[in-house]
Design a protein around this nucleic acid. Sequence first.
RNA 1: GGGCGCGUAGCUCAGUUGGUUAGAGCGCCUGCUUCACACGCAGGAGGUCACAGGUUCGAGUCCUGUCGCGCCCACCA
Length: 882
Amino acid sequence: MQIEKVYEPQRFEPHWAEWWISSGLFRASAKAGGPVFSLVIPPPNVTGSLHIGHMLEHTEIDVTIRWHRMLGHNTLWLPGTDHAGIATQMVVARQLAEKGINYRDLGRDEFEKRVWQWKAESGDTIKRQMIRLGASCDWSRERFTLDPGLSRAVREVFVRLYEKGLIYRGEYMVNWCPSCRTAISDLEVAHSDVQGHLWHIQYPINGQPGRFVTVATTRPETMLGDTAVAINAKDGRYADLHGKTVQLPLMDREIPIILDDLADPEFGTGVVKVTPAHDPNDFEAGRRHNLPKIQVINDRGIMTAAAGPYAGLDRFEARRRVLADLETRGNLVKTEPYQLSIGTCQRCKTVVEPLVSTQWFVKTKPLAEKAIAAVESGQITFVPASWQKTYFEWMYNIRDWCISRQLWWGHRIPAWHCGECRDIIVAREAPATCPRCGSTALEQDTDVLDTWFSSGLWPFSTLGWPDQTEDLATYYPTSLLITGFDILFFWVARMAMLGIEFMGDVPFRTVYIHGLVRDAERQKMSKTRGNVIDPLVVTEKYGTDAVRMALLQGAAPGTDIVLTEERMESARAFANKIWNASRFLFLNMERSAVEPSVPESLEQFLPHAEIDTLEVPIEDRWIFSRLNSTAEQVNRAIEQFRYHEAAQLLWHFFWHEFCDWYLELKKLKFREDSGCTPGWHNVLAAFETALRLLHPAMPFLTEELWQRLATDRATRPVSIALAPYPQYRKELTDYEAEHEIELLQEIVTLARTLRTEARLDPKQQLSGALYSRNESLETARRHAAAIQKLANVKLEFRAEAAPKSDVMRSTARFDLVLEVPAAQMDAQRARLGKEIEQLRKNIASLERQLSDGKFLAKAPAPVVEGMRRKLDDYQAQMRKYD
RNA sequence: GGGCGCGUAGCUCAGUUGGUUAGAGCGCCUGCUUCACACGCAGGAGGUCACAGGUUCGAGUCCUGUCGCGCCCACCA
């Protein structure tokens, strides 16, 4: 069997587009703001989990459901067919935008044509992927190529919420993106602080020539739409102005002075301009006072005809002109620098314009109350628990959710407008006639739903709801949701609200929040920053397993994942280490004409006795005991979502126990001249078990090696993924063996240290003696050959006190003396001095504590006991050096 | 304006209920082309755990404050 010296992931690992699917354990997704990695590892013991990804270019596939069912995880991976369809159109729109074309300007037919064209030309990535993987997606259907099942669920939910009065439609102020030309929800507005100005403008008071009120504003262009000026009724300074009017500069319009709490006497001049059509606060004030709304900025951010001479100007250009004109007229009395927060569209970064328009809203309070209760009562728990607070904070302060979008993709709102009587019909299917006037002139609302509306239904809509399907009964509620905190509100909270509302039960029991992946500078990865680590590139370079391992190592709960190429490099080294360990085994098996094969039973084995000695070799007992302990700890770590700990444990076991010691010890027996039977059974059993333990962390490498081991496939699972995950077994714990090997390790390490310190040639064999007056002597004697090989030291074993010597090193159990040339003695002496110094410090510290009455009275017995033992050890060592 | 989190070795980070001498990877130093692996082996240096108080027999860990950094939420002109 030929195995290359260096592990080449490309040869064994499927391409990126598939590996997160086939492994089912990791995904890297491209999101609107730039690629964001998510780490997803369904623990082997999980009874069900839920994971959905929103992606533009790539989509989660329902074949993974099958895969996970096969694994027996009951893990549920939901298909993103809806979003695949939507994504296709978004991709095209984005490509158009890059060429400076707004998709709307093409007209609907032309846009649709382009979408189809792109699908054909681009090789139809999404569709191809989905078809290959057996996903169901009807591409000929509807304008938006949506999954029909999902659309049905969306309509059902919409209608039911509407009938309950939880969906309403009305004219309100919404966040409007002039570039996307749609309303967006509060959550989709990103706020950022910018350095702006506060402009003070004088409005002349009618009937009192020469008198003015001064208003302050950060957005002077909106003054063109002012329909009032507000003062606070309690503000004594302006008592004489009640009932008066002012003349709006530039527009020469008479507008009233109103009394409203909108004006804060403490702020600025205490007078505030009121623009009901362009500011949320002013909008409310306008309602209170029945003020007209004059829209001076349109849906594209261009000044309307109502803006008089400024009509047709871009809103920012209009601001400059307005200011210049005010300046000329002497109305601009003061300009001061001012820090303000502006809202931008999360998707396109355009400054959001508050506009009045008619939109659909979800009344969220009643839904949120139940979702809060579910977390308070512990039906849903967060890991780490601290996220609960963030969740509550948002839920308690939740505001109604604007769900309509004036986009061309998404689920269309199931509402029809009657052309005759203007009635609105909300229905599951398109009505033939208007129920009120009987007209057939019905037209469906052109708005589509916020994508998060349908996303919020996924835990049950993808399982066939509203039908009572078997899937629904089996998988709802799921046990675990794994996601990033960046979509806690967008998605997690909404799934909770809608799931409880429509299913009467929570959609998931546990929400595991992992960190976002950051680059070496702790920056969130984003395309604009240019710091994106492209999964395609790095998996090509280091291998999927290495990238995955690197992520695992950084996946401490509650912290972000810092992903660096250095870490991936070292993970690649680890993969190679395992590869080479197996290579070593295979080469030796070949030499001794052993067929590679895993032991007959994967779980019910114990280390076997060798035929010639009828004994189980001590190193076999030891490695099984260590493996067992590692399995126990890894299982516990995974259970508690402490993946970084699991990675650390696996790494240490494989590299520093299995390779550094176990294989080195076995090597002695593999040598042709050793005269030993290598005892392949135990070696292979240990290696095979260790591979299974490592499999969730490095699926491809372990699968590849496992397949090479499992030659008798008839009696094996077809994949290592289907083999049982190693569990703790009491009978494998062997303290005796662990103590014995520890002693061996201690002697070897000490001898190596002495050698290096004396600056001796590693190839030169040293001689020396081991002194001990306890059972360690016999134990060590049994390993004389191993010690000689591993430390290149030939020892004598003496049951007597060691002679005083500068080249002696002592432990509590034994003393080691090596024969060192006189020339190297100085280094040894200096070294010994340092060690004695450290020992003295430790003894002093322990003695101080152990003589402290308060400590002895209050500290728990095991702690005191441990310190006493340690002190005894130190003192015993010290006596030898004195 | 509210809320959350972080500051531990040169770098990136662990450190589960407070308990002996604070760990890992990378980097660094020394020596090794040892027949699985130089993506390797052996050994080593390096930390007053941001700062100041407090609680405690005992604090990286708990409390208070200060400084520095980050994130989320928020309709104040």
